[in-house]
Each structure stands twice: as structure tokens, then as C-alpha cells.
Design a binder for these strands. Sequence first.
DNA 1: CTGAAAGCGCTTACAG
DNA 2: CTGAAAGCGCTTACAG
Lengths: 333, 333
Amino acid sequence: MQVTIKDVAKLAKVAPSTVSRVIADSPKISDATKEKVYKAMKDLSYQPNAIARSLANKSTKTLGLILPSTDENLFNNPFFIQAMKGISVYTQKKDYYIMYTHSNNEENALNIMKNYIHSKWVDGIILLTASENDKCIDYLKEVNHPFVVIGRPENAQNTLWVDNDNFQAMYSVVNHLIKKGHTDISFIGGPHHFNVTKDRLDGYKRALEMHGIVIDERMILEAKDFSEPCGYEAMQDLLALKIPTAVVTTDDLIAFGALRAIKELTDKKISVVGFNNTPLADYQTPPLSSVDINAEKLGYYAAKLLVNKLENVENILNHYIVETKLIERESTK
Amino acid sequence: MQVTIKDVAKLAKVAPSTVSRVIADSPKISDATKEKVYKAMKDLSYQPNAIARSLANKSTKTLGLILPSTDENLFNNPFFIQAMKGISVYTQKKDYYIMYTHSNNEENALNIMKNYIHSKWVDGIILLTASENDKCIDYLKEVNHPFVVIGRPENAQNTLWVDNDNFQAMYSVVNHLIKKGHTDISFIGGPHHFNVTKDRLDGYKRALEMHGIVIDERMILEAKDFSEPCGYEAMQDLLALKIPTAVVTTDDLIAFGALRAIKELTDKKISVVGFNNTPLADYQTPPLSSVDINAEKLGYYAAKLLVNKLENVENILNHYIVETKLIERESTK
DNA sequence: CTGAAAGCGCTTACAG
DNA sequence: CTGAAAGCGCTTACAG
């Protein structure tokens, strides 16, 4: 049967409350008593019941995660699983737990989140993506429930978030290309309602401006989705219009599609850069240069910010910026 | 403040126990009372506290998942995230929750599992991989805690599991190749301590035997890991020895490596088949034929078997076999 | 059909 | 420094 705090108390000849204090390592308890209790716990191989603890403490030490599920990117891009790993690494250190659920759409996500919160399962929520007018964020703010966002949210003040500096990341990629002599640089982004797309587009534009290159709006394309076929399609549209010397994209899958379109539709050499440095970037022909966004670290720091808040540890900043790194390969040589 | 069952009881002018029975939809309660209580619940927007419920019920309706983390495959192969999605889809239907943790090694996995169990967080465990002498399985059997395995375990009786028919899957791939005229068919498997590797190897051997083709042990290679470089290396070793007309592998990444070795090291046309039908199989040169193992369905049925057991619904069989399908592309044409 | 009471396994003011 | 008691928010025999 289940060994409880009472059994330990009986064996150690103390009160249950004393055992509880020993578990919490209360400084008020004498060392002698602690020893007695530790021994009894060991003899009975006692393990505290986390549920009972949660009820008494009004805290589960559990974080809730909601994953998109229609998003094709979920399976093609290791971002989510890497971020989940980073979260897990931090929570394990801090004895926190993680719950996750997949959602089909934003409304579904909101319901899952409400359920997590109202049923008292989770102490905090980690949002893995941020979009414009994010209903989840609005709700979490409204009910004032602790959360953190991976990706910079719209009203970043009073909100915990982690992100890459997407503006800077794309700025330096484009800057790098310009230094190599490129002037006709095109941009193929994912759907524009993602903040991440906007930030990277801004970085692209800024780099061109800084070098006095006129921005040609026709060279800025939107892939309908973070997928290979959408990348192919966008590149196809672009080639029908104009042949650039370089293309920056906001996603490896989009870049894979662009590479294929280039191979099939033109003889010109066009440099291509992806984002996320997915494992297969290295195995494209040519191997694809790509920006590593360090998804595991994004997850790790997201968990850290949130746990700090839950434990009332002051966060020096309400966000972390995780560094990016261009991994240069054949596609830009 | 938190709305409790007492507040609802007071407003509806009934006892808390009555409210509890209404929530559980007990047939003993009159419709009139039910109505009153429903109204009160709505007026107060009452949500049951899952933690309190769990404590009283001695059941959390939560399943625990342990993910490998060193495994390179974790990021390269969408298997895990797909299986996790399938699990989530089923648990959502049944109002169950999921917890996950990443582990670094088997010992770590065992500790995480023990913690899940002893702290009473989870009602059941889903193991995403099964290896020889699996310590987690041994432990779960020892303490008689409900669990299900994705992948056929060693002593399958009295154990819930889901899997593809890996023997059959590989058998029919090899059979298919033989029918196309191949007789020199090589096998490159992942590490041999995985049951899945053994089953597929058996299927390979059986198909050859059935057609009277002598098995040449030198044509059976082991990639040290489920990775592209290990596939490359194995193929390289093979080519140094003998040039087959076809190669079957147990993993797309291994197959990607094999394709690259073939391109670089020989002019011969060699057919290649992968496993898992990862999204990028389609974008290899040539596009890779691969066996789709339906990971989402594996997860879905794993959750189903386990939840049935927890709810005392009899499982007709202690396992599910999820169908596989060869997706044929250029690499075998 | 419904209520009062005890219990799930903890924690934590309050006393001493 | 330690204990007795009340409480966290539910459920469920037991009575009626």
C-alpha cells in the first residue's frame, strides 16, 4: 500500500507535521529529529504524494505547453522538439513538470489553455509561437496568469519572452551577402502575420538601405506556408519576374524549395540562405547556408524566466535574446 | 477567488455532495436538482479543481512520456513528435493529460519514471522505444504499473504494445525488389540491439530465402547510429567489398547517407529504400522510396490501449499492429 | 433522491 | 523545537 507521512511519523515517533517540515527542510527542526525522520523515510522508502502536496500548496510545479498540430512545420522542422527539450532540461533541474497538448487551431488552443488554468493543473504556460493579435496572450493577460512566450509578442512590456534578434539576424545575413558583392537580393518570407517574418523583413530592408540599395517590393515574396512546395512556388514566381543573384529566406524548407526551383528553372548561379539550420540543410545540393536559431536554448530560457517568476525570483530583464549564427555552406559560395 | 463546490452548493441550495454527484453525472440525481446545479455552476463559472479530484479519486488521468534526448534521431526524424501528436489526439478525446520529460540515458529514464510513479503524478506510462533488456519495462512489470510500449517488447504476453509488423514490412520491400529483378540486395540496419532492427533483418533474410537467394552475411551491415554519416560510412564499407544492385535500410537518414555514398563513389545505379518516409525523402536526388510507418497512428493506439486498461475497458488484444506502406519514388525505379 | 461526515495525503498558522 | 488541529477541494460509503 501507499506509504504516507503518517507511517513515517509513527515509525520515527514524531508528529506528521514534523515529517512535513523535514521534507520541506525547515530550519526549525533539530538535526537529531531530522536524522530520525530521514531514517524512517528510507526504511519505508517513502515518497511524498505530489498531488496531495499540490492541493495543500495550491501549486503543481507544472508548466503547460500547447503545440500547433496543423502546422506542417511541426514535423519538418525540429524547432518544436528542440525547444521542448530545452524546456525539459531546465524544468528537470528545478523539479518542475511539463504537460503538453496539441491544438488544431487558435480557438482550440485557447480552450486547452483555459482548461489547464481553471482545472489548476498548471502554474504557468509556455507559448511556443506568437502571432498578431494572439488570443492566447490576450487571455493570459486578462486573467493575469503567469506565462512566457517564445517569440517577441506585440506588447512586450510586462510580458516574459525569449527570442532571437530576428532583425539583427537577417540584417547581418544580408549585410554579409552585400559585402560579397550581391546587390540583387530577394527575400522570401513565411506568412507575414508572424512577428518573426516581419522582424526579419525589416532587417532585410534595413541592410539594403544602409548600403543605398533601392528596395524593390517585387523582390519581396511571401510563401504561403513554411513548406518546400511553397518555397518552390515563390521562387518560381520570382524567376518569372527577375533573376536575382541571391535569395534570403526565413525557413530552411522554403529555401529547399527555392533551391529546387533554381536548379530546374535557370542556369544562373543564385546564392540561397535558409533559417533554422535543420539537419538536412547540410545534405542539399548544394549544401544550404542557414542561420542557426538555437531552439533548445530558446526553450531553456523560456522555462527559466517562467520558473523564476513562479518562485518569485526577480528576473533582471523580462526577456532573453538568444544568439543566432550563420552556418555558411556551398549555397552562398 | 477560487470558486469551489461549496459555493455552487450554497447558490443551488443543495449539499456539496450533491454538486459532486451532478458533476459525475450520477443517475441517482433528479433532473430538477441537476438543472438547479447546472445553473449555479454556470452563474459562478465554476470549474472543478482537477488536483482535488485527483487526490480524492487516487487517479490523475495523466499519462507520462519519456523521450530520449541524446538520440540524434530525435531531431532528424519526425517519429517522436508524430507519435506525441497521436497520443495527444486520443487523450484529448478522453479528457486525459500528458506529461513528458527528456532523459539522457537509460538510468536517467528509469529515475524519471520512478518519480512519475511514486509521486503519483501519472496513472500510466507510454514508452516510445523498446530495447533489449529494457530496464524500464522490467521495472514497470515488477511494480505492476500500467504501461504500453511503442515497439514490440521482448516478452510481449501480459504487456500492452503497438507496432508495425516490421518483419512483414521489410519482407515485402525485399520481395518487391526481387520481383523487379534484383538478386544482389544489401541490408543496412540501425544498431542491432533495437528489436525493430532485428525484426526487419529477419524479414530481409526470409524474403531472400523464399526466393532461394543465398544470404551473404557480408552484405548485412550495421550503421552505428540512425544518422546520415553512419549511413554513408556503412555504404562506403559495402562498396569496398561488393557492389549490390539494391540496398534496403531501416531508416531514411541512413538511406540519405547511402545515396550520397553511391553518388560519390560509384557510377553504378543502385536502388535504395528508406524507412519512416520523412518529409525530405521526397527531395533527395533521386527522391527516396521509403516505408511510411504511420507514427501518429502508433501513438494514437498506444494511448488507446493504455486508457482502456486504466478505465477497465477490456482490450480485445493486448496489442495493435499499425500498417506500413512503401512509398515508391525514383530511387527504386 | 439527498445530506452529513469522513477521508484522500499533504501543509501551516497557532500554541506551547 | 515540536504537536494538535484545521484546511486545501474534492468523493463516496452510510443513513435516511
